[in-house]
Amino acid sequence: MFEILSSFEIALGLITHADAELWGIVWLSIELSVVAAVIGGAMGLPLGAIVGIARFPGRRALIVVLNAMLGLPSVVVGLVFYLLLSRAGPLGEWGLLFTPKAIVIAQAALVVPIVAALTRQVIEDAWAEYAEQMRSLGVGTARAVRTLLWDTRFTLFTVGLAGFGRAASEVGAVMVVGGNIDGVTRVMTTAIALETSKGDLPLALGLGVILIGIVLAVNAAAYGIREWSARRHG
């Protein structure tokens, strides 16, 4: 208990006396996670929407695959991208391994299934409500997808934030493809892992408190947006 309390003290100290190095790590975490969430969202959102509305051969199989990917250990994802991006791998020429871009790619790959699965649920629920009315008006599939995406935009924004949370809290894959290089690919989670392995548990947890704070702020924002949209748009 004492250690946990002292961790909060350290976290507070870290924030109030933050040095450039810490801010560098925090900022890099946020920057990479935002880009990963945007890319993963751009791919997962339409995927989830199509699976949610359309009926096509292989849809059930796709849903099973998407749901299974939700539980995929991130370190496996990391390993796959490590082998792909390694100089000895098929994409080795790009020289991306141990760079921030490799981190973004691995994070985005982890964001896609979570965004797709949540989007599918959101769109399916909305579609259950809208389907008859839409068909009565003679709305085609493409327009129906656009309309549903627009009408659920606030919920989908929170889905995007969930994707951001997934990316920001990711450690296994990030460690493998990023290499935890000081000042280059060291993000909050890998810094926490490093401090843990150095036995500096209070500092590790202190960094963890900052990470929790960021995720908490993001979720509070998501909650606020939903509340506001419910009041404004019903």
Binding site: P46, I53, A54, V145
Partner: peptide
């Protein structure tokens, strides 16, 4: 909703 091949390709294109 049944999806026409055309609609499917149009959506896929938008996705890409």
């Amino acid at each position: 909703m049944e999806m026409t091949a055309r609609a499917f390709w149009r959506l896929s294109l938008a996705w890409v």
